[in-house]
Design a protein around this nucleic acid. Structure first.
Lengths: 193, 193
DNA sequence: GCGTTCATGTAACCTGTTACATGATTCT
DNA sequence: AGAATCATGTAACAGGTTACATGAACGC
């Protein structure tokens, strides 16, 4: 549903090739919507058919030719119409939480290890978002304000995850688990049928 | 990838029909992994083929027959093996953030309205998670602790979103936007080519 | 009489990932 | 000599949504 519009947003800033769009997805928009180049080329084809973008082949010597896409008036209108429809929030969806939910059937030591890995990852991401946020500085245009707000979601998200990982590591530590009154065998526990 | 294991987690608690699994996905596991019944029946078929579960048809008078699935030893092993592989965190993916990123090309008034709607939604969800968390009380078993920790992710997640929505509404209010030094036309702005 | 719950599934479709495929240039 | 960047795409598959299909029992 939204890949289409994410691409239109990218192209609405100025004409871009599929390759350019893919790069932007890796750098900025990709924080909020990811896509591989294979998907991007496929979608660009559809956008062209629906005449939401025009394509123009640019001769290049030495390098392969670029096919540059420009947004059409219809494309801008589609983008505006899309922005008027309520979007539904992304729901939590995480296999790690499923493992926690079924904690009696999983390997606790592995879970602890994965928690540490996640902690590092979330800290890295947090730093990345912060850096991008800093570059924007004091937002003096609507455009910068929008990007800043979007990044702040990322900052909060990663920060909370990192914080939670730290807590979870403590509460699932060997010592903490040993203190639980209702103890179950720690490793490879086979549930009652 | 993970639907398979989410279903195994559900069945590892005790034998269940496809219908039962679907219900549990609506109530508890569904906070962390969602699936429609069509997907669940399809997946159960595959699990049966791979002999990770057994199926047994139960006669019922009045109601349609139930097909009850039980986890096999191979199923438990698969679950354990899965828990040993690192899972990758869900990345942020939200069309709303894409709209913010391309704020010059969207309808600002609509955006504000959607922000309010989201705020409500996140508050509702937050309350839901909190209620479920309260019911678990002081975790005295590993199983409860796991579920509690999982719910806490949800609580944090919804709380941060709600908080962010409040902030965003202020910073994108008509008055706040009017104060930006680098003003762009507010409605239906057509970008420079 | 009508909607809900119980209970199963199929089919078509859309979205997203992985791998395949090619080929020149530039940097190390 | 080998890797990275530029630049395009296709094909097969996996995961997920929507809609179709059926049918009895129970409560309002």
């Amino acid at each position: 549903m939204s890949l289409k519009y994410s691409i239109l947003v990218a192209i609405s800033e100025g004409p871009k090739s599929g390759y350019d769009v893919a790069k932007q997805f890796d750098e900025t928009i990709g924080f909020f919507w990811r896509a591989r180049h294979s998907q991007i080329y496929r979608e660009l084809g559809k956008l062209k058919e629906k005449q939401l973008v025009f394509a123009e082949e640019m001769q290049q010597t030495g390098k392969p030719n670029r096919i540059v896409f420009t947004i059409s008036e219809a494309g801008r209108e589609a983008l505006l119409a899309w922005s008027r429809e309520p979007s539904q929030p992304q729901e939590l969806k995480d296999d790690f939480l499923v493992q926690l939910y079924g904690i009696d059937a999983v390997d606790l030591d592995a879970l602890r290890e994965h928690l540490s890995l996640r902690l590092e990852r979330h800290r890295d991401r947090h730093a990345q978002y912060l850096a991008k946020h800093k570059i924007l500085g004091d937002a003096d245009s609507l455009s910068d304000l929008g990007r800043q707000l979007a990044l702040e979601v990322g900052i909060r998200y990663e920060n909370e995850w990192a914080d939670w990982c730290t807590q979870a590591l403590e509460r699932l530590s060997v010592e903490a688990v040993a203190k639980l009154s209702n103890v179950v065998p720690i490793k490879g526990s086979r549930n009652k049928a």
